[in-house]
């Protein structure tokens, strides 16, 4: 379970997150929607400690992410994250990208990590690209590689930070399909996305962020089909045309 309590975060003068409370249960899929600058990506990256916070608490399985005594590297092993920008390691082949962390962080044997990496790459449909370098892969393939790389650490939670926003439109589907597959397998996921139809059918709950706060949160279909808040409705009208 991930618990966020009264989270506050500023970048200099800019108050990005103004008090967020949120609880995500095991097995749940939560989509975060909202305009750019509304704080959803920042909040996501606070969950695995990539940003510092000014106030509040983030608990992952009751471990305080921002407690000085917390081993952040250990905690990150159970929280996978995929970013908007492709960030496969360009000097490593696909299989080496995926095998690296299990080997150097978990200390697994090289051969075992290669088997593990091959398994996860096949799982996301890249079984025929094991020895390709990132520069030889399309954007959609690179994002699936990033998903496989995160999954190889066998995380309990997966965070997705606008993973389709930098993709050509025809490549978005393959990445969304991969996330749907993970949902079917019961993965707990928090997904920042602009793909509203995807959020509606693939998630359990949707949270609408506005100006650093959660303006509305609830059942995915209800929030998107029948929003209670005026600002949610205005946002949805803007993005759905």
């Amino acid at each position: 379970m991930i618990e966020i309590k009264n989270l506050q975060k500023s970048f200099g003068q800019h108050h990005v997150i103004k008090g967020i409370d949120l609880t995500i249960d095991k097995g749940e899929v939560l989509c975060l929607i909202g305009g750019s600058g509304s704080g959803k990506s920042t909040m996501l990256q606070c969950i695995n400690g990539l940003h510092s916070i000014d106030d509040g608490k983030v608990l992952v399985d009751e471990i305080d992410v921002f407690d000085k005594a917390t081993d952040l590297n250990k905690l990150r092993e159970k929280i996978g994250i995929v970013f908007q920008q492709y960030n496969a390691f360009p000097h490593l082949s696909a299989i080496e990208n995926v095998a690296l962390s299990p080997r150097v962080v978990k200390g697994m044997k090289r051969k075992d990590t290669l088997d593990l990496a091959a398994k996860h790459l096949e799982h996301v449909g890249l079984g025929d690209k094991l020895n390709h370098y990132p520069s030889q892969l399309s954007g959609g393939q690179q994002q699936r590689l990033a998903i496989a790389r995160a999954l190889a650490m066998e995380p309990e939670y997966m965070l997705f930070d606008e993973v389709t926003s930098a993709l050509d439109p025809e490549l978005v589907g393959e990445v969304l399909d991969t996330m749907r597959m993970l949902k079917d397998e019961g993965m707990t996921m928090i997904i920042v996305t602009h793909e509203i139809p995807f959020a509606r059918e693939a998630s359990d709950r949707v949270a609408f962020f506005d100006q650093g706060k959660i303006c509305e949160i609830g059942d995915a279909r209800q929030v998107i089909n029948d929003p209670r808040e005026l600002r949610t409705r205005q946002f949805l009208e803007r993005v759905l045309h």
Partner: peptide, 23 residues
């Protein structure tokens, strides 16, 4: 080297020494 390479490597549980050594 873009900052996202550091973020990606840290998010996989690598400490700073490993991020520099391997990535």
């Amino acid at each position: 080297i873009s900052q996202t390479q550091y973020a990606a490597a840290h998010s996989l549980g690598m400490n700073s020494f490993r991020v520099y050594s391997y990535v």
